[in-house]
Simulated assay, not measured.
Amino acid sequence: MKMLVATTVEEYREKLQQFFSEQKVQFYNEFEVKGVDKGYKSKHRVGNWFSDGDYSTDHIAFFTIIEDDQANQIMANLNQCKNDMPKCNIKAYILNIEQMV
């Protein structure tokens, strides 16, 4: 068994829901999260004169438990989907499940 975790900006919620339906994901959990960009990558040498706060965006996160073979197929299809939409902001991760109750 694998855990699939996917995150995206709120605007892609319906796209990801449709993708899960097409992949025959029987159930998933969905919740709203606040994404925060600390801006560490492009720090200017004199600091940021205009803002000292974090930049946050509305995101949506999904997770589900799926079979190994389904996980591989979903990731392959999601990669193809992202190739078709170069600015797509969907991130997905597959985690191994060692134990379940």
Rank of each mutant, 00 (worst) to 15 (best):
L78H: 12
M75C: 01
I90M: 08
K82G: 05
V101Y: 08
I97D: 10
L78P: 14
A92V: 02
R13D: 09
V46C: 13
A92E: 02
R13T: 13
L78A: 14
D52K: 15
K91I: 05
M85N: 14
K2W: 01
I94S: 13
K82Q: 06
E10L: 05
G35E: 05
Q70A: 12
D58A: 14
E30Q: 08
S42F: 03
Q99N: 11
K2N: 13
S21E: 12
L95G: 09
V5G: 12
W49I: 07
I74T: 01
Y93T: 06
V5D: 09
D52A: 15
N29S: 14
K2Y: 07
Y55S: 15
E98W: 10
T64I: 02
G39H: 04
Y28I: 00
F63W: 11
M100G: 10
Q70F: 01
L95V: 10
E22C: 02
D37R: 08
N89W: 10
E10C: 02
G35V: 07
Y93Q: 07
E67Y: 04
V9K: 07
N83P: 01
K24Q: 04
V33N: 08
E14A: 00
D58C: 09
I65S: 14
K43S: 14
E22R: 01
L95W: 06
V101P: 12
V46E: 15
E22L: 01
